[in-house]
């Protein structure tokens, strides 16, 4: 089947099987390998992308379901002006270790911040509860998202130095 999708602002006509998973279309047909696969049961969130601006798990969406829609992957976040505030936030606050969950985490956080520009720690934790990270223990992911939120609101940036007891 032929479908039309706009990925990171570029229109594509893509030939897929009905059963082709959206994540496979993105990774293997469009060669955008920043979107990862970590489970098969929509449990881990490594495959999270934005579909018409909503974060979804692309391992549990068929490519044909994206027909006529727009997709944003991690490769589409940075602009000519530079990194997305979330990308910067994760880098400045050690919000990643192995990097495998990071693209999904960042895309999920981008919708979270679009809906709630000033989330509490609790809201962030619940907001990323569909994304598993095995490395960081989440503290610095929360901090990264708080940093990005401040930046996107135009507030003063919080310190990125580690705090010790």
């Amino acid at each position: 089947m032929k479908i039309n999708v706009t990925v990171n602002g570029t229109a594509h006509e893509v030939e897929v099987e009905a059963r082709t998973l959206l994540v496979h279309m993105i990774r293997e047909i469009l060669n955008l390998t920043g979107t990862h696969i970590g489970c098969d049961t929509s449990s881990c969130g490594a495959c999270t992308i934005l579909l018409n601006g909503k974060s979804v798990k692309s391992c549990t969406v068929l490519a044909v379901q994206a027909n006529g829609k727009s997709i944003t992957t991690i490769e589409g976040l940075a602009t000519a002006e530079g990194l997305h505030p979330l990308q910067e936030g994760f880098k400045e606050n050690h919000g990643l270790h192995c990097g495998f969950c990071t693209p999904g985490m960042i895309l999920r956080a981008s919708e979270l911040l679009a809906n709630n520009p000033n989330p509490t720690e609790e809201q962030i934790r619940w907001g990323i509860s569909g994304n598993l990270c095995r490395c960081t223990g989440y503290n610095n992911i929360v901090k990264s998202i708080q940093y990005a939120a401040a930046k996107m609101r135009g507030d003063a940036l919080p310190s990125t130095e580690p705090v010790f007891v």
Binding site: N31, E75, L83, T102
Partner: peptide
């Protein structure tokens, strides 16, 4: 020094290169 990680530049942009990315 709490140096920011050098490797993160690629990971945050989806440019990490994992085994399943090899074609």
């Amino acid at each position: 020094h709490s140096l920011k990680r050098k490797e993160d530049v690629r990971f945050i942009q989806g440019a990490g290169h994992y085994v399943d990315d090899i074609k």
